[in-house]
Nucleic acid binder design. Structure first.
Lengths: 328, 328
DNA sequence: AGTAAATTTGGAACCGGTTCCTAAAAGGAG
DNA sequence: CTCCTTTTAGGAACCGGTTCCAAATTTACT
C-alpha cells in the first residue's frame, strides 16, 4: 500500500511539514534532506494528488472539448495541444461530445467542478448557452476554429484561404462553378470560407456560380455531388472541406468523370489522405497541429495570468496538386 | 465563489454530516431534505471533487493510453470506450504517448498517482517494463489490440481475418503474391496476420510468395511497394493494414498499373476512407468502436470486482469491394 | 402514558497534503 | 564567549468532503 507523508515523516524521524518542505523546495538542512531522500527512495512514496489539489484549490489540467475524435482536424489539433501542454507541465483532459452541443455545455460545467485550470474548446457553433457558461465558470476559455468577440479565439484564416484558392482556380480559367458549402451556423466553414470565395468571384463577372449546402460526411457530400452533376455541368466543384471533396471525387468517379480532365475539384483542410489518393487533391492546407500548439500556448498564458491577444490567426497554405485542370 | 458543504449546512441550519447524507442518499427527514434542497438550488452548490476523492481514495476515471491520436483505429476505439464509460458514469482520461513506449510506462505510473480506477492500453508492443508496471500498480489493466497471457486482453481476430482474406484472394486465383507486413515486434499485426495468411497459403503449394516488411505510414508503404513492383510482378499486394494498402495503391498509380486489372490489393482495418476511394478497397474490417465498448465494459467490470474473461476476441468481417480481380 | 425500537441529527475524527507561526539550532560579529 | 541574526524544524490549523458513533427525536406498541 502507498505511504503517506506522515509515514515518511515518522520513518525519517522528522515532522510532516519538513517532508513537505523538502518536496516543495523549502529550507531543509543537508542532513535531513539526505534522510528524507533515502526514505522516499526506499518506500517509493508518491504524494496524493487529491490532497494537494484540495489544498491548492486548483489543478494543472487543461480541459479540451472536442466535437469528434475521428476527424483529421480534431486529432491533429489535439496532438498539438497535448505536445505543448506536456512541455509546460500541464495535463490535457479530453471531453468528447460526439457533436452534441448540449454535451459541450455540460463539459464546461463539469470542468469547473473538477477545478480545471483552463478550457480549450474546439468549436463548431457558439450558442448563447456557450457564452453563458463561459461567463459563469471562472475559468479561462479559448475557442479554436470559431471566433467570438467576447471570448479568446484562435481561428484559421478561412476567408483568405478561400479567397486565395478561389483566385487560383479562377486563374486556371474556371467559370462554371459549383460551391459545396455547409450550414451557415458554422461561421468559419459555412460563412467565412463562402465569403472568401465570393469575394474572389466578384472580380470575375462572367462566372456562373451555384451554391449548395451539404453535410460534413463524405457520403452526404457524395450524394449531393451526384445530384449536382446530374443537374448542371460545372467545370469545378469547390468544396468547403476535404471530406466534401473526397465525396465529390467519388461522385465524379461514379459518374465516369475523369478528374481533373472532365471535372476539377478542390477542398479545404490538407488532410493527409488528400495527398496519397489519386488524383491528389488541390487544397487549402490548415496547420492544425500548430494551431493546437498555439491554442495551448495561449491558454497556458491565460492560466498564468499573462496577457494574450484576443484573436490569434493560424496560417494556411494553398497546396497545388493534381485535381485542378486548366480551362480556357 | 463556490460554497462548501459547511456553508450550505450553516445556511440550512443543519450539520455538515446531514448535508452530506442528503447528497449521498442517507437517512434524512423530509423536512430537512426540503430545507437543504432549497439552499443547494439557490447557491448552486457543487461538491469539491478532490475532497471527495481524497476521502474515497479512488476516482471514477478510467485512463486510456493511446499511441497516437491520428489513426482511424485509435479514434474509433476511443469513441467506443468513451461512449460506454459515459453510460456507466465513468470518465475517460486519455494519455497520448505519440508512439513512445517510454511514455506509455510513465503514463501507467502517472495514472496510479492520480488514483485512476482502471487502465485501458491501446497496445502496440508489450515489453517487460510494461509487465512490471502492470504488476506494480494495483490498478486493473486491459490491453486492446495485443495479447499477453498474464494480462486481461481484448484482441481483434487477426489470425482468422488474415486466413479468410487470404483464402478469398486465393480463390480468386492469385498465386504470385507479395505480402507487405510490419515488424514482428507487433504481435497482432506483425505476427498474427502473417501467420493467418501463411496458414491459408499452405493449402496452395503452387504459390509464389514474397514477404516484405514496411512501416505503418502510407508514404513508407508507398516507397516499399514501388520497390516491390520494380523487382517482381505479383498479381496481388497483400497488405497488413489499410494504410499500407493505401500506399500500395498510390504506388500502383505511379507505376501506371490499373487496380485491380493489372494489380490487386487488399488491406486490413476497414477504415472509412477505403470505401470512398476508387477503386474501393477490399479489406478485413475490424470493429474498432465495438471493441472499444467491449474493452470499456470489461474494465468497468474489473473495477467493480466482477469476473471477466481473460481474453476477449472482437469480430471482423471481410469486405469485398473493387480492388481484387479474378485470375486464372 | 410509558417504554422500546427505529429514525434522524450533530459532533468529531479522518483522508493526505500545505502553510503559517513559533521554537530551537546554527552561524556570525564583536 | 556572548549576543544577535539567520536557518531549520516542529506543531497545529486548514482545505472540503465522508463516516462513525452517540445523542436526540420520532414512531410504534402495549
Amino acid at each position: 500500500m502507498n505511504k503517506t507523508i506522515a509515514d515518511i515523516a515518522k520513518i525519517a524521524g522528522v515532522a510532516k511539514s519538513t517532508v513537505s518542505r523538502y518536496l516543495n523546495g523549502g529550507s531543509v538542512s543537508d542532513t535531513t534532506k539526505k534522510k528524507i531522500e533515502l526514505v522516499i527512495n526506499e518506500t517509493g512514496y508518491i504524494p496524493n494528488t487529491f490532497a494537494q489539489s484540495l489544498k491548492a484549490k486548483k489543478t494543472n489540467i487543461i480541459g479540451t472539448i472536442v466535437p469528434r475524435l475521428d476527424s483529421y482536424a480534431a486529432s491533429n489539433t489535439l496532438i498539438g495541444i497535448d505536445e505543448h501542454l506536456r512541455e509546460q507541465g500541464f495535463q490535457m483532459l479530453i471531453a468528447n461530445t460526439n457533436q452534441d452541443l448540449e454535451r459541450e455545455i455540460e463539459s464546461i460545467y463539469s470542468f469547473e467542478r473538477q477545478k480545471i485550470a483552463g478550457i480549450i474548446l474546439l468549436a463548431t457553433v457558439i450558442t448563447d448557452a456557450h457564452l453563458e457558461a463561459f461567463s459563469k465558470v471562472q475559468i479561462p476559455v479559448i475557442l479554436v476554429g470559431q471566433q467570438d468577440e467576447n471570448t479568446y479565439s484562435l481561428i484559421h484564416d478561412d476567408f483568405s484561404a478561400a479567397y486565395d484558392l478561389a483566385t487560383y482556380m479562377l486563374n486556371k480559367g474556371h467559370r462554371k462553378i459549383a460551391y459545396m458549402g455547409v450550414t451557415e451556423a458554422d461561421i468559419s466553414v459555412g460563412v467565412n470560407r463562402k465569403k472568401g470565395f465570393a469575394a474572389a468571384i466578384e472580380s470575375y463577372p462572367d462566372c456562373e456560380v451555384h451554391y449548395y449546402v451539404t453535410g460534413f460526411k463524405i457520403k452526404d457530400a457524395m450524394s449531393e455531388a451526384l445530384k449536382i452533376l446530374n443537374e448542371t455541368k460545372p467545370t469545378i466543384l469547390f468544396c468547403a472541406t476535404d471530406n466534401i471533396a473526397l465525396g465529390a471525387l467519388k461522385a465524379a468517379y461514379l459518374k465516369g468523370l475523369k478528374v481533373p480532365q472532365d471535372l476539377s475539384i478542390v477542398g479545404f483542410g490538407g488532410y493527409e489522405i488528400t495527398e496519397v489518393i489519386h488524383p491528389a487533391l488541390t487544397t487549402a492546407k490548415f496547420y492544425y497541429k500548430e494551431a493546437g500548439e498555439l491554442a495551448a500556448q495561449n491558454i497556458v498564458r491565460m492560466v498564468k495570468g499573462e496577457q494574450v491577444e484576443k484573436l490569434t490567426i493560424s496560417k494556411y497554405e494553398i497546396i497545388e496538386r493534381e485535381s485542378v485542370d486548366k480551362r480556357n
